[in-house]
Design a protein around this nucleic acid. Structure first.
Lengths: 341, 341
DNA sequence: TTGTAGGCGTTATCAT
DNA sequence: ATGATAACGCCTACAA
């Protein structure tokens, strides 16, 4: 059943040229006479020839694979982001290989083994590799791009959302709406993004807290998803100690919280309590939530990550680039713009 | 900056053995004396040696990459399914390469180009390749697994959800609940799954329709997502011609529909109108929707797809396998089990 | 512009 | 059990 695959030598024979001419015909930067190239393409078409990437990789010491390191793909924002990354990688003539590191303590071992693939780069969206492992790649000439992982690293390029700005925008909007008993909520398990968003929120408000014009509380939910938010909401209602404005570091948590409120019917949104989320996942637009949120663009994040990777491939020795992607506040039902006027 | 990568020859030199011994040491099926293997591993560790997959692929004529063909990854069910597939592939010692074919009319060209990668297999979850292209792979010894694409194909292995059973279960439940004016809704753009689910629903009910004991209507929404469902709901309410039980071929459409109902407050769920979805995406469990639905297990689907692929790799010449994965009805708020007693 | 020839790092075959 | 050697298919000097 196994048909021997057709090689450039086969094409060469049929086209009546040398094997190297065939090879060159498929390299757009090689100068080949028009006639020859035509002949070669015709022969290649006839035989159904496709370049063997493995052989190509051996010579060039680089495959066209990009490692996409993530912990799961089903989380709402994550799936949107990975979707954008896959498209962006594909549009750059590269191929995404997905590596799931949900088992986060094995990340270094898993990354090490990626050396086998002569990757064109690694984009890390979950987990943080040790400096040593990151260096292994960079020394080999394999770009490493960290997305929302840290502020600076000795060697890797970095793309971060403007997380602090996100927190600050939420804080501002709640202030303008006249809310005075504020709260910021993130998952107990700290992520870089959540910590930064929280910090942005707190920093923006700290002068007012000092003045005593507002009260401010930092709170945590058990898990960074819908159910964590729902649980958090139920607990808060039970405590009978309510804020009048809350910023959630992730939309999905905010949605869970809103559902908890809805069920108890104790507090009206946004009059009694305003809610702001972060990310603008598609669920935030659902009528049941209609969540005011700080939007980030997965497309912009993906484009920034891939372009950082490409730049590094072209100029391996320039110093690491650190980039911040902008955010914007989107008003919906859980804090309307008119509230803030 | 580019450090020359360490090869098995380097390891051999350090370990004081031949290069082939190093190669064999990393092949568990090769018999090597314990002492030698220890030496080799020690040397490999010291140098940070990793097998070069490109070279390996050249010889074996097969990489450990599995092509995962999909149209987008952000749709709720799709992201859960791909998540399971990625994990399953990884746990089988393979690597997932994602190919986005949102641009569905280019699928044949895109698939052809995958020949370049000497894949261990291709799992197609979106789009349907032409017979000719599928054959190209299979002739090469590259397994092709179609997931929810068709009933039979000349050569490829097939994994389908038991889509008809899904429709039938929904129909039964609505009948038992005493609903008599039934409707089934799917996206205007037909997908294999939706068509089969609809068929299962209609077939189950057709005897009763003939008897005249129930009325049954087939309807379509513009898009196969939340917004399609919301739009559909608004239109239905405007028409003032209401069914008392509806089966949606996808959960996300059902959620949009429920939100439209909620907004108008005309019909109570499930008393005036019962709603059943399909897939059991995580949103179906959200309190705002609490959707009764026909559950499918992405894990089971993924396991079936990958195991079909593995079997085919081991036994290339057995005839195509076709497999159906079971479904189960999950009662929640939009049609409670007590309704059906 | 085109052809010739060497080598990329591995596995597999054949000796030993 | 281990070592030597020949592929695998391509790219890239170098030569013509």
């Amino acid at each position: 059943m196994d048909k021997p695959s057709v090689t450039s030598a086969d094409v060469a024979r049929l086209a009546g040229v040398s094997q190297s001419t065939v090879s060159r015909s498929f390299d757009s930067s090689s100068r080949i006479s028009d006639g020859t190239r035509q002949k070669v393409f015709a022969a290649a078409d006839e035989l159904g020839y496709q370049v063997n990437k493995a052989a190509q990789t051996m010579i060039k010491k680089r495959s066209d694979l990009v490692g996409l390191v993530t912990a799961g793909l089903a989380d709402p924002f994550r799936s949107e982001f990975l979707n954008s990354l896959v498209l962006e990688i594909q549009n750059n003539g590269l191929r995404p290989m997905v590596i799931d590191v949900s088992d986060t303590h094995t990340i270094d071992v898993q990354l090490q083994s990626l050396i086998q693939y002569q990757l064109s780069g690694v984009i890390i969206t979950s987990g943080t590799p040790s400096e040593a492992v990151a260096k292994t790649f960079i020394k080999r000439g394999t770009p490493v791009v960290l997305v929302n992982r840290a502020d600076h690293s000795s060697e890797a390029d970095i793309v971060n959302l403007d997380n602090e700005k996100a927190g600050a925008l939420a804080a501002e909007a709640l202030m303008k709406a006249g809310k005075r008993k504020l709260m910021v909520v993130r998952s107990k398990v700290a992520s870089y993004s959540s910590v930064k968003r929280t910090k942005g929120f707190l920093d923006k408000l700290s002068p007012f807290v000092k003045q005593g014009s507002i009260s401010l509380e930092e709170a945590f939910c058990e898990t960074g998803n819908y159910h964590g938010g729902a649980q958090f909401g139920a607990d808060l209602l039970a405590s009978k100690h309510y804020p009048d404005g809350v910023f959630f570091c992730m939309d999905c948590i905010a949605c869970g919280f809103l559902d908890a409120l809805k069920q108890s019917n104790t507090l009206a949104v946004p009059t009694d309590i305003a809610v702001i989320g972060c990310d603008d996942i598609s669920i935030a637009r659902y009528q049941s939530y209609d969540l005011t949120t700080v939007r980030q663009s997965p497309q912009k994040m993906a484009a920034a990550a891939v372009s950082a990777l490409q730049k590094r491939l072209k100029q391996p020795n320039t110093k690491p680039i650190q980039q911040k992607v902008s955010v914007e506040l989107v008003f919906r039902g859980t804090l309307t713009e008119s509230n803030t006027l």
